[in-house]
């Protein structure tokens, strides 16, 4: 068994998922502790996004267990919406609500899902937007009027405003050019320092080195190798990990 313990806010056991004939997740097990930042790297098609989507059941896994704060997420008796409200999700393409301003995008969760009053929701939303350093003159702007970096920071604020137990990031900077990716990564590093629990799928090796407590390398639907960021990224043991890291390094030269 992989090292999982009672202090883990999230435990994944032997998770499997097939799309048609293609096996996307082939028995994945790991845990995420409270306050921890865990980074998942790996080539496209390795099952990283599918894994995140299985955790809050945007995708139904075929087999295995997802235990969130002691609750079996895959059980039929579970009200999945209550679980989702406690798990933040940040998407590659931001997925902001286009008809709502930045502030309204962040307010809508506390207001509609948690049933808070407009005033309370607004207080929380302003705090969350400040935490991601959104410029005040952007609060009342619509997503189409914001830069990609601002949009992604609003999306992070939207997740934060729900005061989640963990936030899942699905390649949050892949749709951004390097400068805008930088402002998003800075926010994420700050969150890591503040001990916000995060599970991050990314190709940003720098972020993994700086902020991760552990890095998982995904390959062929499995955790192929895992370890401390420095150990795994500088001294990978397996051939596939080395080949992947070389390719990433070549790209950034």
């Amino acid at each position: 068994m992989p090292p999982t313990s009672e202090s883990d806010v999230l435990i994944i056991r032997n998770l499997k998922k097939k799309f048609g004939e293609k096996t996307v997740l082939n028995g994945v097990s790991f845990g995420v502790k409270r306050g921890e930042t865990k980074v998942i790297i790996g080539p496209s098609g390795a099952g990283k996004s599918t894994l995140l989507r299985c955790i809050n059941r945007l995708v139904e896994p075929d087999e295995g267990e997802v235990i969130f704060d002691g609750i079996n997420v895959l059980s039929k008796d579970v009200d999945i919406r209550k679980i989702r409200a406690r798990i933040g999700f940040v998407f590659q393409h931001f997925n902001l609500f286009k008809h709502l301003t930045a502030l309204e995008n962040v307010k809508i969760g506390p207001k509609v899902v948690k049933g808070l009053s407009d005033d309370e929701a607004e207080k929380i939303a302003v705090k969350a937007l400040k935490a991601v350093h959104l410029e005040e003159d952007a609060f009342e702007k619509y997503p189409a009027e914001l830069s990609g970096g601002q949009q992604q920071r609003v999306a992070i604020a939207r997740a934060l405003a729900m005061e989640p137990d963990i936030i899942l990031f699905d390649e949050p900077t892949s749709a951004l050019d390097p400068q805008l990716a930088g402002e998003v990564l800075d926010v994420m590093k700050e969150l890591a320092k503040k001990k916000v629990t995060m599970l991050v799928v990314t190709h940003e090796i720098g972020f993994a080195l700086n902020a991760a407590d552990e890095v998982l390398f995904f390959y062929n639907g499995r955790i192929w190798e895992r370890g401390e960021p420095r150990e795994l990224l500088y001294n990978p043991k397996r051939e596939e990990t080395k080949a992947f890291l070389r390719r990433i390094a070549d790209l950034s030269l």
Partner: peptide, 22 residues
């Protein structure tokens, strides 16, 4: 786009809340 629906689901909204608010 389905992305907005996924975002709303991830916040914990019900189907009806998604139709009404998103």
């Amino acid at each position: 786009e389905s992305g907005q629906i996924e975002a709303a689901l991830s916040l914990g909204m019900t189907r009806w809340e998604i139709i009404r608010h998103v």
